[in-house]
Simulated scan of single mutants.
Amino acid sequence: MSRRKTPARAAVPAAPRCTVTVCRGCCCGTPKIPGVDHAAQLAALKAALGPVAQVRVVNCLDACEHANVVVVQPSSAGREAGGRPVWLGLVNDPDATADIAAWVTGGGPGIAEAPPVLELYAFAPSRRVRRAVED
């Protein structure tokens, strides 16, 4: 029986600016998370970050127990400075959304210190889930 080798993944160059990935699939952005104006949350991120970061919406990040999930990926300069993607869960409050926007506007991972309150939202997803977003 022969084993198939998985092809090596090519290195993807870092984006020149931060990328903010917002989950809006299975649980995030749905009535399963009551009392949150999901459309307003996304609109606030896009309005605040449009000039400084790419905001992208994905169907499901497979971290449903942390809904609503937002991943902040560093810019190329942030990655060079040691910044790594930061996964934030339970982002269900307008103040958390504003804190994320302020941090990214200030440079994001590797460039600016995250507001201490965001440590309460940070979590580490499984490698399989993390690889799907960060590659």
Rank of each mutant, 00 (worst) to 15 (best):
A53D: 04
A53S: 07
A53Y: 10
V55G: 01
R56A: 11
R56P: 00
V57T: 08
V58H: 02
N59S: 08
L61Q: 09
L61D: 03
L61G: 08
D62P: 00
D62F: 10
E65N: 07
A67R: 05
N68L: 14
V71A: 12
V72Y: 08
Q73D: 11
Q73P: 00
S76C: 03
S76L: 14
A77S: 14
G78A: 15
G78D: 11
G82Y: 13
G83S: 04
R84W: 04
R84S: 10
P85G: 05
P85F: 09
P85M: 14
V86M: 11
V86W: 04
V86D: 01
W87F: 15
G89F: 14
G89M: 09
L90P: 00
L90Y: 08
L90V: 02
V91M: 15
D93I: 03
D93A: 08
P94V: 05
D95G: 01
D95N: 10
A96F: 15
A96S: 11
T97H: 09
T97D: 06
A98P: 01
A98E: 13
I100V: 10
I100C: 05
A101S: 06
A101F: 09
W103S: 00
V104D: 07
V104E: 05
T105H: 09
G106A: 15
G107N: 04
G108D: 09
G110Q: 08
G110W: 15
I111G: 01
I111Y: 04
I111M: 11
I111N: 01
I111W: 03
E113M: 09
A114S: 10
A114G: 03
P115Q: 09
P115D: 15
P115T: 02
P116E: 11
P116F: 13
V117P: 00
V117F: 10
L118F: 11
E119R: 03
L120D: 12
A122F: 05
A124R: 14
A124F: 11
S126N: 05
R127W: 08
R127Q: 13
